[in-house]
Nucleic acid binder design. Structure first.
Lengths: 308, 308
DNA sequence: AAGAACTATGTAGTCTGGCTACATGGACGT
DNA sequence: ACGTCCATGTAGCCAGACTACATAGTTCTT
């Protein structure tokens, strides 16, 4: 019952092909195949089945892969123990973010982490439209993901998620707009406006849909953009209004746009760190997540102070 | 961060010497020493310290050994998973018992387990006076131990204990004794009798002590025996009375002895199966423990039916 | 006080076992 | 039917964990 072999089985469960496992573990497919064969012989029952030109896990294989995760967690917890004893988090941590969260959290968090010698954080950004957040966890230690309340697309996949912050989604208006002097807005106030939306299928879309449901009217969506900067430039040009994450865009100092909170709607998004459970145990990873979380609460506090 | 090496560290924590670990794991002391050295180099901090001619773990070493236990548990749980898939418990299970529990539970339990092909249970008995129950768990998979209520001598040592039964301790009287017609006895009834006790330091001893406390008189103890058969033979010979575990001795069919429950005293012993946590996860071990537990409840039920 | 008996640990050499490189044999797409 | 993608066999290499033996330190004995 070798741990390394179980680890390969677990990778197979996640990645789905021997070749992918081989690539990920810096081995040849042959080596992976051989080890899986040995594991199967030890187990005394088939763990994989051929399906087309690939192969899939049997029930037994999946069950074993699940226990392998528990072992990996225990293992990483052990290394975290001696990392704690050495009193420092070291190693490489890779991270993907979607642009807005990265802009908001990463610079500060990385500054906070600068005094950790030997801790290297490698960041990338990825368009949330193109990315399947859960799938990214096999490539990156930390995946910054966002979700609307209640819709946990990654629930039940055995991933660890740490909530970082709840960010309200406000209505962004050009400074001279007729609603720009109001303290807050209701669905009826905004449904008649010209909207700049997000691409279809984006989680934000639901809020505009809720507005339509509440008022019984349809909203006019003229453009659909994924990039928030682009959206903001359209707002400031007076070409429409849009939902804007409050903390992210408040960074814009030009004063050509104002944000108004939405009343009576569940208009906020959760930003979470998504990780494979074993990776989540690494002290280095936990340290980075903690820095992100601290930064997130600081952003919220700063903003609350600024508006008060 | 190799699991095998961590396992050696854990064994060292339990057994206390490199030589003992080597013996237990069928290796030479040199091999063990080398592996521990490698582990230490990987960890980057000392895990062991020389103390006299042996060596002891440092704080870091102990912490790491503790995590190693978690890993071992997860590992055994994984093997239990595929044992379940193969739908049979196989392998060798070793067990020590003290005589009375063995006599009461083992024959029946082993009969119940006879239909499990490939499951071999190796039993031994050991005098409870001579044996340190917790220490035996490194030599045997299952240790049948008894304790009085509330005194868990093995608490906090990180062992798993499964309660099998609670056995009342009655007063054994020769059939013609003046108290033999009573339904139950109190402390005052029995304190003046001639007693056959257990060796000093035995857990039972506390009950006789309680009797003395309750009545304010001293009990006369003429003999002290560890073997229950011996005690019973003395009772039947009219040489004294004694505390007798109810289920164990009721097997005696000669009718020359009667058992009377004690009123107003906490006169019962717990019989538990004591195991190292990793071993406790093995399907084979769990199967044997379950058979013991089933047998124990059956013994209790049969006895309740017989007296009703 | 000196040796015997125990501890751990170095050193040299052996051998198991997981790897790579290459070749083979199905399954899918065109 | 061919090329391409899979998984998987085979042969041989090499790291790394082991044994056997030697060494050094500590404790108990006589």
């Amino acid at each position: 019952m070798d741990v390394q072999r179980l680890e390969l089985l677990r990778e197979l469960a996640v990645r789905g092909s021997v070749t992918a496992v081989a690539r990920a573990t810096h081995r040849t497919p042959s080596a992976v195949s051989q080890q899986l064969k040995v594991l199967e012989r030890e187990a005394g029952l088939p763990l994989t089945e051929r399906s087309g030109r690939g192969l899939v896990l049997t029930d037994a294989g999946r069950a074993l892969a699940a226990s392998a995760t528990d072992i990996a967690v225990a293992l990483e917890r052990a290394t975290a123990v001696w990392d704690t004893f050495r009193n420092r988090a070291t190693g490489d941590v890779s991270l993907v973010t979607f642009p807005t969260a990265g802009q908001m959290l990463l610079p500060g968090a990385l500054q906070d982490l600068a005094d950790h010698d030997g801790l290297a954080v490698h960041c990338t950004d990825m368009d949330p439209e193109l990315s399947d957040f859960p799938a990214l966890t096999s490539e990156y230690d930390i995946v910054l993901a966002h979700s609307m309340r209640g819709q946990h697309t990654w629930g039940g996949r055995g991933l660890t998620s740490v909530p970082l912050m709840t960010e309200p989604l406000d209505v962004g208006l050009p400074t001279g707009h007729r609603l720009a002097t109001r303290a807050s807005l209701g669905a009826a106030d905004v449904v008649g406006e010209t909207w700049i939306g997000v691409p279809l299928g984006y989680p934000f879309g639901r809020i505009l849909h809720d507005i339509e449901l509440q008022t019984g009217s349809r909203a006019l969506v003229t453009q659909r953009f994924a990039d928030m900067r682009l959206i903001e430039s359209f707002i400031m040009a007076g070409l429409g209004i849009a939902l804007v994450p409050r903390y992210t865009s408040s960074a814009d100092p030009t004063g050509r746009m104002v944000l108004k909170p939405l009343r009576g709607l569940d208009a906020e998004r959760q930003i979470v760190a998504l990780m494979r459970p074993d990776r989540a145990e690494r002290l280095a990873v936990r340290t980075v997540v903690e820095a992100l979380r601290a930064r997130a609460t600081q952003v919220q506090a700063e903003h609350a102070a600024a508006t008060a």
